[in-house]
Design a binder for these strands. Structure first.
Lengths: 191, 191
DNA sequence: TGTACTGTACCGAATGTTCGGTATATTGAT
DNA sequence: ATCAATATACCGAACATTCGGTACAGTACA
C-alpha cells in the first residue's frame, strides 16, 4: 500500500514535513498521529511495516518531486542554460520554504546509516549533481569547472539551510541564492 | 559535577563523538554506556541531571575548544591575516576529521528547539562569524564584503559536512577548503 | 573510616507495534 | 434492484520493548 503515491499525497506531505523537521529518531508515531489527524493504528493501516515504511514512502515521494520539478526542467535543452538556472533557484526557494525548511538529505543521514534509503538519496543527489554539471558545460564551462561549480552549489544550498536554521535569519537563503546567480554569470564570462 | 572539564575530558570526548554522530534523540543512554565503557549508574554519577546534562557538558566543552583553538588564534593580530586563515583551515580539518565528523550545530538544532543549548551555540556561531569578518577587514576587505565572505565560508563548511556525509567522498572537504583558500586571496586582490 | 565510584536490580513512562472491531463504500451474482 | 461478500479506511485498547532515571549495596582506595 505504501508506494501508492496516487492521492494520499496530502498524507505523505504531512509525514514529510515532520520527518524533515525532526529527523527519523526525533519523529514519533504519536507526533505523526497528531499532525495527520489519524490515529496510530490508522497510520499502520497505510504503512503496515511501520515507521520505516512511512519514511520510505516519504523519500520516494520527494524523489519523484525532485525529478519532476528540478531534474527534468534542469535538463530541458530547449531552454537557455541561464534561464534554467534561474528557474532552478526559484523552485528551490519554494521547495525549502525560503530556507525555513530542512533537507531530508541532511536530516536522515545520521548514525551509521548505510540503508536502502541512504542509497536512494545518494542516487538523487548524484543525478542532481550531474544535471548541474551538464548545465554548466552547456553554458560554456569546462568539465572541470562545471564539476567544481556544481558540487559547490549544492554544498551552499545545504549549508545555508543549516545556518539559517541556526540563526533564523530569513534573508540568508535569499542572499546566498543571489550570490550564486552572480557567480554563475561571472564564471561564464571568464570561461 | 557536570561542568568539571578538568580531567574527565576523555569521557566528555566520547560523549561528544556520539552526540555529534547520532543527534540528541538518536543518542541513547545505553549507547553512551557501551561507548564509554561505563555503566549507567556511573554516567549518572558524573552527570546527576542526566542526558541533557551530558549534552550540556559536551556543548560547553566544545565551546571551550572552539574558543581556544579557533577564535583566539583567529583574532591574534600579531599574525598576518593570510596565515591566520590558513591556520584556521588546518584546525578545522582536524576538528571535523577531514569532513568525516559532523558538526553539533547542525545535529542539535532539529525540531522546534529554542533551548538554552541552542543559545549557547548561537553565541559561538556569532563569535566565529564576527572573528571572520574582522579578519576579512584586516586583510583589506570592506565591511560589506567581509560580512558576505565570512557567512559564506561558514555555510560552505557546514554544507560540505552534509554532502560528504552523504557521499562518503573524503576529498570533498579538502577540495572545498582549497577552493576557499583561493577565493580568499582572490577577494584580497580585487579589493 | 570515609569518599569516590561501580554493579545490579528496578521503576514509570514513552516508544513502536499489533489486535479486534466498526463504518462505509464497492463489487458480483442473482 | 437486491443482498451477500469484499475491500478500504479508520479507531480504541492493549502489546512488548526501550527509554531515561533511581535506589542501594558493594568495591577500591585514601
Amino acid at each position: 500500500m505504501a508506494q501508492q503515491a496516487s492521492e494520499n499525497t496530502s498524507l505523505i506531505e504531512s509525514l514529510f514535513e515532520i520527518f524533515r523537521n525532526h529527523g527519523y529518531e526525533g519523529t514519533t508515531i504519536s507526533l505523526l498521529s497528531e499532525v495527520t489527524g489519524l490515529q496510530k493504528s490508522s497510520l499502520y493501516h497505510h504503512f503496515p511495516k511501520g515507521k520505516e515504511d512511512m519514511l520510505k514512502a516519504v523519500v520516494s515521494y520527494v524523489s519523484a518531486q525532485i525529478h519532476q520539478y528540478i531534474l527534468t526542467p534542469l535538463s530541458d535543452s530547449k531552454v537557455k542554460p541561464e534561464k534554467r538556472f534561474t528557474d532552478l533557484i526559484v523552485t528551490i526557494k519554494v521547495f525549502y520554504g525560503d530556507g525555513r525548511k530542512n533537507c531530508l538529505l541532511n536530516v536522515l543521514n545520521l548514525g551509521d546509516a548505510k540503508t536502502e534509503i541512504n542509497e536512494l538519496q545518494n542516487n538523487d543527489y548524484s543525478a542532481w549533481l550531474n544535471a548541474l554539471i551538464q548545465l554548466g558545460k552547456e553554458a560554456g564551462m569546462t568539465q572541470q569547472d562545471a564539476a567544481v561549480w556544481a558540487e559547490r552549489f549544492l554544498i551552499v544550498v545545504e549549508g545555508t539551510l543549516v545556518i539559517q536554521r541556526l540563526t533564523s535569519d530569513t534573508h540568508t537563503f535569499e542572499n546566498q541564492m543571489e550570490y550564486e546567480q552572480k557567480q554563475f554569470h561571472q564564471l561564464l564570462k571568464q570561461g
